[in-house]
Design a protein around this nucleic acid. Sequence first.
DNA 1: TGCATATATGCGTTTATGCGTATGAAAGCA
DNA 2: TGCTTTCATACGCATAAACGCATATATGCA
Lengths: 116, 116
Amino acid sequence: MVNPALIQEISQLEADFCFALSDPTRLLILYALADQPRNVTELTNDLNVIQPTISRHLKVLRERGLVYTVRQGTTVTYHLSDTRLIQALDLLRTVMRERLAYQASLMEETKASSNA
Amino acid sequence: MVNPALIQEISQLEADFCFALSDPTRLLILYALADQPRNVTELTNDLNVIQPTISRHLKVLRERGLVYTVRQGTTVTYHLSDTRLIQALDLLRTVMRERLAYQASLMEETKASSNA
DNA sequence: TGCATATATGCGTTTATGCGTATGAAAGCA
DNA sequence: TGCTTTCATACGCATAAACGCATATATGCA
């Protein structure tokens, strides 16, 4: 038997990790970094989001270890920590896509029966 | 070239999907349902969380298609929609575990050098 | 119909989140 | 040192989330 308090704590950690993925800008940052490492200014330009907002989102990702930084003079380059993150996101996206397709098909059926 | 607005929208959808995973109780619900389908009362007992809270979390999961329901009389049994969700969560957990281990090792080094 | 069980939801409160603006801090260089 | 560039953060505001409590809704049955 596993300690319930421990299970609670692990779930909290995992939820906290997932929280980092629950914002569209943060996802776009992760995808951009998966393509190649970028500094803050580059992310600001590439995503067309103002710099303080980018920095705040980077902080969320950094605190959870999803990205790491390399300082080069005045610039800070952000790197994706683990490409399996992208694998996991791709899997989630696949599941989501099929769910949406299924729900859309249900709507089609509804439309058909209302026409009958 | 891909429409930027479309990318935005897909990221928003995916973030919304991930949001469902960003709460420890919802994760525990998903793991419980991965083990076997359960009704609301069973989830309430198994997770030791009061019923309205369970119902609200189930609504979040249901709205995003992560779970689906089967009504049997007065009870409503919840099912996990796609076991690949658990695969994705396992992958995230693996990444997270390695990150935490790495960070812990950094702390050990810090301790060692301060002792030197 | 009246009642019991199971589930969902409205309400009010507390807390957390995201964002824009302004500003602070770090590094390089004249 | 003073200036510039780059990045991080504090503050204030608006919005959203989570929760407990109470209550509404749905189903089955006497």
